[in-house]
Every structure is written in C-alpha cells, then in structure tokens.
Nucleic acid binder design. Structure first.
Lengths: 239, 239
DNA sequence: GCTTGTGGAAATGTCAGACATTTACTAGAC
DNA sequence: GTCTAGTAAATGTCTGACATTTCCACAAGC
C-alpha cells in the first residue's frame, strides 16, 4: 500500500495523525506490513520530519504501529489496537466506513457492559447526574422530528449514554464513555433513522432515564438492554 | 512541589516518563498546579530537552498533563486521567503506595465488570483459552506454598484474570486486561498473603476455571464474584 | 477610571541539519 | 557452506535557532 490513495492534508501533526490513523483503521494496510518511511511521508505531504514523527508517535501510542530503529515501522494487528484510547475514539468517529468487525466488537461490549453501568448509575446518581440525563434526553426528543437534525440527535444520544457512564461515579467506567461516540455515530451511516424507529429508540431511552431517576437498579439494567436491542437493529447487527 | 524530592534517573525518556508519572500518581502535585518547565526538568536530571519533551508527550497522552504554548504545563485532575492506557497500568504497577482512591475505583470496576466477563468467557472460550487458564491456575497453585514466591504468584494471578478477559473473545474487554496488573500487584503490598487466605483464594479461582471449562455462564459469574469478594478482603476494602 | 493597545518576557512548539544507533543484507575470506 | 566484516537504510537523538502563544505590565486615549 502506498500513500498515493490518501487525500492531501492541511494543518498540523494532529491532522496528519488522523489521516494516517483513519487509513489504517480502514484497512489500507495489513497487519505486518511495513509502513512508509518518515522521509517519504514528509515528502508526500510536504511537512517536516518533525511533524511526521509527532504523528507517528501518536499512532504508536495507540498501538496501531510498532517502530524499531533500523527495521522501520510495522503495522500491528487489530488485537493490539488500544480501542480505549480517546484518540482512537476520535479517529473512529470521523470514519464513514468503520470496519464491521470493530462495530460489532464495540456493540457486543456495550451490550454486556452498559446494563451493568446503568444499574450502577441508578444506585449512585446524584442530582446533577439526573440533570445531565434529562437535558440530553430533552435534546434527543427535540431533534427527533426532522431528518436534517440527525447529526444533532446523535450528539444528544452520545451525551445521554456518556451521562449514564458518568453517573456510575466510577473513574474507570467514566473513561469508557469515549467508546460511545464512534459506536453511536456509526448509527447515522448505517440506518435510515426513520421516524418510527427514532420514536421507539426515544421511548426506550426514557425507560432508562426513569429507572435511574427512581434509583431502581434492576429496572435500569433491563431498560438499558432494551435500548441496545434497538441499537442492534439500527446497526444492522440483527434484524 | 519541586523536583528535588525525586530520585535521580538513569536511562532514556521512558525511564524519565515513569519517574514523573509515578510522582504525579503519588499525588506530589495537585490538580491545577503548574508543572516544572522543560528546561528545568532537563537541567535537574541532566538530560536533553528532547528527552524531556518525549517524556512529557507520554504524560500528556495519558491525560496526566495539559500543555499550552505560552502558558506552560498544568496538572490535570484525576477524573481526566486515562486509566485504561496501558502505559498508565505500567506506571501504576511499579508504584508501592498507589492512591487508595484509585485502588478502590479499580476494584469497584472489577467487581461490577468481571462477573460479566467471566460469563462471556464461559460462553466463548475455546480450547486454547481453557489451556491458558489451566496453565495460569497451575502456576498459582505451585507458588502458593512459599512466602518468598509471592511475586511469582501475583504474576500467575494476573495471567489467570487476563486469560479470562481474553477468553471473552471481545476486543474491547481484552484491552481492559491491562488494568488487572496494578490492581493485583497492590495485593502484594496490602495483604500479608497468609497461607490460609491464599488457599481460600485459590479455591475460588478454581471455581471460575471449572465454570468456564464447563461453559456454565451463570456459575462463572457467581464464581468470579466470589473471587472478588476474597480480593476485597485482601485489599482491605472490606473486613 | 476604564478601556485599549503595545511591548516584552516566558513558556511551549517547530524547524533543519548533523550525528548516533540499530538492523538487515551483502560480499568476501577461508 | 559458514562465518565475518562492511555497508546501506531506517529510526532515534542532540543541538541551536527561531516561531508562536500567552500573560502581564505599562502607558495612551477616551
């Protein structure tokens, strides 16, 4: 794989890192492949070697690449990727065609984890957590009508689930909220977001909100599971 | 807080990064504090500015620091730390006195998550997963007798739990295995690891192994919970 | 007095070039 | 054939200079 297929870039090392990371996430290189050399990348994108090194440092920290002096830069396999690195979430979010394997893995994780998180949230939620949830839910409701507001709707969706993780009041679970963004953003590209499915999704989110508000842990678990069943349909994982 | 209290260092930027990270994790600086400047750090440890920048880049990527041109380097609050970054796990592992707040947060996470993971593992485990679990369990068993083998025992303990996460065959859960090391290593410093508690812990691990081996998800969940109850006692979280 | 702008100091960010180190491959001696 | 020395090629490191951003002090003007 060469760099020729990649679009030009504009901006600093962060932009370059995103560009290269998304190419890797999209599968332009196979695990074990040698990645282009620093100087070639710099020449191709007309940036200094410094910028290239900064970008590659990020990709290495995210577990996408493995660099060795003398040998060069190798592409690591999917199992080594740091899917929980916030940078990864950011890169995945902007990717239109995320690898279905990844979408499914993240969904399977959420399906097993999010009910537990919702249960914890029901136990630990404070007033401000409830407020965040209500505010996010209100946003989802107000943007559910129009098709053109689907991006806005997705943002409120992310905010709702993130608020759930935060309400668990556990530092580790909270960090995991980053994973939600790419997962929910994939919904935009994979589903038609028809009005009736949106209404159904909204109703299921409301169940979660109500359960957490009334501190009913088992109800929150059940409701979260129902939300994710809806999500699975919209993602095309099940019919 | 100044650098004077820190021990000298030897080696590359990675060593320096570990040193500074562990000082931060130990609470030598408060959130919002200004971190020493690049040049001062370089002068103090007698390393080039390059090394300092590389080290600080790691800490920034881990969410420990926030750097802005012109302003300087600020220490971020605990809620922003990337606890799931493998580098963080590595730094935490070597820290003798990990912040009790962190130990408790990680334990609370494990207590809520690990039963689910064990359940998934029981469903998804392949032959090689069972082998890994058995091998780790055998190691725990053989190193349970002597007090001087407690470090070795901890390694097998980590391997056992890591094998559980891997057996779930989910890319996200698998990444989370990194968190186990600091959590389990904290056991060494916080408990006497007396023989009878070790035997009890061993027996509970065996229950997990047996449940996964027989693909009994609910039994695996229960058994994992029992292991963690034992862990809570050893960590001093409950009596 | 309050705002506004202007300058300088101080910090991180960037660049360019040379050099160091590691690795893999190749050619030659035996 | 096998071992060894040498060479090329890649990433890693150092250094010094410069760029950029931010904050602060101070003064001009309304």
């Amino acid at each position: 794989m060469t760099l020729d297929a990649l679009p030009p870039h504009q901006g600093g090392a962060e932009q370059l890192a995103r560009l290269l990371a998304q190419a890797l996430l999209a599968g332009h290189w196979q695990p074990g492949d040698v990645f282009p050399r620093e100087l070639d990348i710099g020449k191709h994108f007309a940036v200094s070697r410094n910028q290239v090194r900064n970008a590659l440092t990020s990709l290495t920290a995210a577990g996408l690449l493995e660099r060795t002096a003398g040998r060069g830069t190798l592409v690591r396999e999917v199992g080594d990727w740091h899917l929980l690195d916030p940078l990864m979430s950011e890169w995945m979010t902007g990717l239109v065609n995320l690898d279905p394997q990844l979408v499914r893995a993240i969904y399977a994780f959420r399906f097993s984890a999010e009910p537990v998180v919702a249960g914890l949230a029901a136990q630990a939620a404070q007033a401000e957590d409830i407020e965040r949830l209500e505010s996010a839910y209100a946003g989802m409701e107000s943007s559910a009508g129009s098709v053109e507001a689907r991006a806005e709707h997705a943002e409120y969706d992310v905010a709702f689930h993130d608020a759930t993780y935060r309400a668990s009041h556990n530092l580790v679970w909270r960090q995991m909220g980053h994973l939600l963004r790419p997962s929910i953003m994939a919904l935009i590209h994979r589903s038609q977001h028809r009005t009736d499915t949106l209404d159904d999704s909204l109703a299921r989110h409301r169940q979660v909100l109500d359960a957490i508000r009334s501190h009913d842990a088992s109800a929150a678990e059940t409701a979260a599971r129902e939300v994710l069943r809806r999500t699975a349909i919209d993602l095309g994982i099940v019919s």
